[in-house]
Design a protein around this nucleic acid. Structure first.
Lengths: 97, 97
DNA sequence: TCACTACTTGCGCAATGACGCAAGCCAGCG
DNA sequence: CGCTGGCTTGCGTCATTGCGCAAGTAGTGA
């Protein structure tokens, strides 16, 4: 089965991804973005937190490379960068189940 | 594709799993355990940390339900509970790559 | 320019996490 | 018994995280 990675740098990078997914609200964001891009205010309403807090969560997700943003007028839309994030999330759920 | 989960409890549970994987040393432990069960002292040697520290990391992994332990004499062996953890880890690496 | 909306950033606080070190626990052995 | 090896637990410290609130920035339109 294996070929699990070797270098410390790779482990650190994977840990950053895991850390980004290690919060219920951020997982909720991922769920929403699975349905297409959303603005910050839209996400903060749907997830149920204040806009500054949502902005911070999105910063975490973006610096982990999981989401990207696009500006349209004064509105910023976020989207998932890689569909495999959803596969990873699903696996987490399965292991959790 | 979706049907990503709905309830807050499920998200919290998935977040606990992600948090358990959100540390390079714990990922290293997962890698080692992919090759079969290991004792605490063995893991602490291979991963490169002190035994008490390793014990704590293993506690985190166990309370997330990712590993289980077995006692043989005075030695405690840990093993992976679910092979899908490795799939999840591999996906994290792929997204990271 | 002014006002308004949308978002980001800074700050302070309480909570959590990782680590080292010391102490405790438990099984096996003399 | 005590002693030793293998683990766990407790404690103190320092860094990080999530959050609320206030302030700052940027685009839009009157």
């Amino acid at each position: 089965m294996e070929i699990l990675q070797t270098t410390e740098a790779e482990r650190i990078h994977a840990a950053v991804i895991a850390r980004a997914l290690a919060d219920p609200k951020r997982l909720c964001v991922v769920e929403r973005l699975a349905g297409g891009e959303r603005s910050v205010s839209q996400l903060s309403r749907e997830v149920g937190c204040q806009v500054p807090n949502m902005s911070q969560h999105l910063t975490v997700l973006r610096s982990a490379g999981l989401v990207a943003s696009r500006r349209e007028g004064s509105t910023v839309f976020y989207r998932l960068v890689d569909e495999r994030i959803l596969d990873a999330y699903r696996l987490l759920q399965q292991v959790a189940g």
